[in-house]
Structure formats: C-alpha cells, structure tokens
C-alpha cells in the first residue's frame, strides 16, 4: 500500500544461517496449503482465484484443503459472529506449527456494517493476524499481493518485537 514501508524496522527478522535453513524457508513459502472459514462475497473472490485467469497454481497453492491438520494458512472471510467463534478457535488450535493467518475483506477486519449484538469484536486477541486485506470485496490482484507478503515474512522469519504495541485502526 505505501511504498515506504520496510518490514525490518517493525519486527525482528533474521537471515538464514546456513544453506539448509535457506532451503527450508524457500520450500515452505512456495507451497502453502490454505483452509477457508466463513462465507460472503470475499470468499467468492477467493474461489475465483483458482480459475484459469488468475491461475494461483503457479504460485504453489494447489487447492483448498478442508482438514486443519494438513493446512498451514488460515484465511478468514466474512464477519466473525459469536456462534462461529468456537469453531474457528478449534480449527486454529488443531493446525500444526508453523502457521500464518490472513484476514480477508473489510468485514473480517473491522466488522463492516454489522455492528450489533451478533458480532464478536475482540477476536483478534485470541488469534493473531499476519496480513490485512481491506476491500469489499478485495480485487484478486490484492489477494495475490497478500500471498506475496506472506512469502516475504516467511523468508525473513519475521517475529513481533516485544516493545511495539499493536495498533488496529
């Protein structure tokens, strides 16, 4: 979004110490397996990435897996309600380490139009998010850009610094 955002100033990044470590990070970032929770127009745009036009298989993503033990990327689309939150937490706990999380669409980040008794607005304290993609629905090019940002975080092994507070809006 802003061209002057350098990742190294905001989190701890480490370079690969030897060749095998570099190969491990390279292989992890080029073969992510996603799992999708939620529904809405943002989830519809995520499905249309698998067509022939925005062929996402050339980035290494084969297809959506629906079993949490085999996935390492969690994509949350649509507003998080109080009824689906226990299931979402269950899915996140059953995924094996290492794992990354994308929040897709304006409704997942801030709730959108639906600020009422059904919304769970502090789900961010239980599940940490790595990349935010605003838009309603976001264009497919920005979703591909989000996957490239996750690649950058894996290659540099980005971890949060302890003294920077998370600013959410």
């Amino acid at each position: 979004m802003r061209n002057d955002f350098i990742l190294d100033e905001y989190c701890l990044t480490t370079k690969a110490s030897n060749f095998m470590e570099w190969v491990k990070r390279w292989a992890q970032s080029r073969s992510l397996w996603p799992i999708l929770v939620g529904s809405g127009s943002s989830a519809n745009e995520f499905y249309s990435l698998f067509g022939s036009r925005y062929d996402i298989e050339r980035l290494g993503i084969d297809g959506i897996k629906y079993s949490p033990a085999q996935a390492d990327l969690l994509v949350i689309a649509g507003p998080v309600t109080k009824k689906i939150f226990p299931i979402l937490k269950n899915v996140y706990d059953q995924m094996t380490e290492p794992k990354w999380v994308i929040a897709l669409g304006s409704e997942a980040i801030g709730g959108g139009l639906f600020q009422n008794h059904t919304l769970m607005d502090n789900w961010n304290e239980f599940i940490p998010v790595d990349v935010n993609i605003p838009g309603s629905p976001p264009s497919p090019e920005s979703i591909i850009q989000g996957i490239l940002f996750i690649r950058e975080r894996i290659e540099k092994n980005a971890k949060p610094k302890s003294d920077i507070k998370e600013v959410r809006y």
């Binding site: 127009s41 009824k83 689906i84 299931i87 139009l113 639906f114 009422n116 008794h117 059904t118």
Partner: peptide
C-alpha cells in the same frame, strides 16, 4: 443453521430507506 447470522433485519430499522440498498446486496 445460523453460523453467519448478522441480524440484517434489525439494522434495516436503524438506517434510512436509501442506505437499505447496501444491506439488501448482502
């Protein structure tokens, strides 16, 4: 059912007639 229930019918009563078009698209 009800895992994506957002109570749209309650939000219709809080916004005007023209903003309701945005809700009906959902």
């Amino acid at each position: 059912i009800g895992y994506t229930h957002k109570a749209i019918e309650k939000i219709f009563e809080e916004k005007t007639w023209t903003t309701g078009i945005l809700l009906a698209e959902q």
